[in-house]
Amino acid sequence: MKHYSDEELLTMFFEGENPNYAFNLIVRKYQEPVYWHIRRMVICHDDANDIVQDVFFKAWQALRSFRKESALYTWLYRIATNEALTFLKKKKKRYFLPINDVSRILEESLEADVYYDGNEMEKKIQKAILKLPDKQRVVFNLRYYDEMKYEDMAEILGTSTGALKASYHHAVKKIEKYINP
């Protein structure tokens, strides 16, 4: 498959004869990073599958009003982050749970998920990550797994790079403390 730049894809979407085809190319280009970002937040594959579809559905609805002020991929990540956080909030409300119980439930999902086969160390790190507050988890995952620049993270999360660095460093310390007590 030919690799199109974001600019080419957006031009195809807005000016081309077949916006559906252009959108399909956008989905193909970003489905994996968006899915993995969501999956690390909600843990369960089935939930991540539902949410990633919601994300692209919302992107389809909103793309016409996309102003190109941000990059396409940071825009998609922003939708994905919001959807994942909203899902977790709903989960807490649905079960009337305080946050620590939600992290316990996510841990149980991790143990039960047939599509998880991390080694002992990876599992321990995941459990440590699940103990972080949701927003800090987003920050840690974007930096550690997605290798994202702080500038892009700032655009996605609407936070200063200084705060993101601090939050990430803090998360690393907490995880370190958990895995090497």
């Binding site: 989905v27 193909r28 599509y115 998880y116 086969d117 991390g118 990876e122 550690y144 690393v172 895995i179």
Partner: peptide, 29 residues
Amino acid sequence: LQSSLDPSKDTGGFRVPDHFFDTLPGNIS
């Protein structure tokens, strides 16, 4: 940060069903 974490040795451990990313664009469409 004196951390022992190493992203190159840690993929997270998650995986997806076979051909998941082949079928996802069709499902979305």
